[in-house]
């Protein structure tokens, strides 16, 4: 028993477990297909939107949910752990999305197997974003608090407008005909992987250090911690993961427009964190899921009422949560959700 537990704790085993579970769930949701073609659709990442238990609409919402969870959890590393109030997260997502889309479309032959394409897309998107994250993090970390927010907001918009002016990626028309190979399986696996990474960072000495810097930077320095170094590292990790989310986003829609990556998107990611509870990973997940489902889930109401109530309900829910649970749904002050303690 002890031995089994030991092996289950091995990281490689865990990753395979995540792969298997993601596959199982996508298999179940696509209606237990047994044909070779259907199985290969799940495994080899061909988007399938017609068969299965889910309607194409619900399927696409689930994919968006996974991507939003990735973004929210990656921002938790900066906003929640280090206390860095950054407002340009959509910029990192944009870099991931555009760089991976152009890499797949222009740099490698279209006959490349889909699985390889997916891995390349996620890694290229993440790395490009991490490089930019390093530059932005390094240059803006002299600032703190609101000023850092302003500067990162500016950087986010600069990234967006720079992309808007590159004709090769479509400019204002947007980028079209991007190969679509993001499916539920890949989104679920990557988001689980991101949650695992952030959770491990949180539990390690690096996570403790990040919290220490958030709580009291001077005291942290007196503990022999170089705050700038840790913050830049957090920036790199966070932007890498946001870039991965962006890459998956690019290959799920098949169409990219810079309008998706405005500061409104950045604020949405911050809102996911705040509603879930700053500094908690489970909160970032719940917040990301809630803010994806809320505006979509109430579309059905329109059939009964005739008017579009969903945005009103969306706004009202957020307001009520903030009034009655100012620490967020999973915030540290309402530690009543014991089931999620292991997730931190």
């Amino acid at each position: 028993m002890q031995k089994i537990k030991h092996y289950l704790n091995q990281t490689v085993v865990k990753i395979f477990l995540l792969l298997f579970v993601s596959f199982l769930i996508s298999w179940v949701l696509s209606g237990f297909p047994f044909s070779d073609q259907a199985l290969s659709q799940i495994l080899f990442l061909k988007p399938f939107r017609t068969s299965g238990l889910l309607s194409p609409y619900v399927y696409s919402i689930l994919i968006l949910l996974g991507i939003n969870v990735m973004l929210s959890v990656s921002l938790a590393l900066l906003n929640g752990f280090c206390g860095l109030f950054t407002m340009g997260h959509a910029g990192f997502m944009a870099i991931g999305a555009y760089s991976s889309a152009s890499f797949i479309m222009f740099a490698i032959p279209s006959s490349t197997p889909l699985l390889l394409k997916l891995i390349a897309a996620v890694l290229i998107g993440g790395s490009m974003s991490a490089i930019v994250g390093f530059v932005i993090g390094y240059s803006s970390l002299r600032l703190a608090g609101d000023y850092l927010g302003m500067v990162t907001l500016g950087f986010g918009e600069i990234i967006r407008i720079a992309i808007l002016n590159i004709d090769a990626v479509g400019g204002a028309r947007g980028m079209i005909d991007i190969p679509q190979f993001t499916n539920l399986f890949s989104v679920m696996f990557v988001s689980a992987l991101i949650v695992l990474i952030v959770k491990r960072i949180r539990e390690s000495r690096f996570g403790r250090t990040m919290f220490a810097i958030k709580e009291n930077e001077i005291a942290a320095q007196m503990m022999g911690i170089n705050p700038t170094k840790i913050k830049v590292q957090a920036f790199v990790f966070s932007s890498f993961m946001a870039g991965m989310a962006g890459a998956l986003f690019a290959h799920s829609e098949g169409y990219l427009s810079t309008q998706t990556f405005t500061f409104v998107k950045s604020f949405e990611i911050i809102a996911m964190n705040v509603i879930g509870g700053l500094g908690s990973i489970s909160g970032a997940i719940v917040g990301g899921a809630l803010l994806t489902v809320l505006p979509e889930g109430f579309r059905v109401l329109q059939d009964f009422t005739g008017i579009d109530l969903r945005m009103i309900i969306y706004a009202l829910t957020i307001t009520l949560i903030m009034i009655f649970l100012p620490q967020g749904l999973m915030g540290s002050k309402n530690g009543n959700v014991k089931e999620f303690k292991w997730l931190k």
Binding site: I201, R205, F206, R208, A212, A220, I225, S332
Partner: peptide, 24 residues
Amino acid sequence: RLFKELTVLENVMTSFFHQTPGGY
């Protein structure tokens, strides 16, 4: 100037940061 959100044990553990080997 304590790290208020961390536990008492974690507070002390932060001071071992630079004495611990191993990276991310």
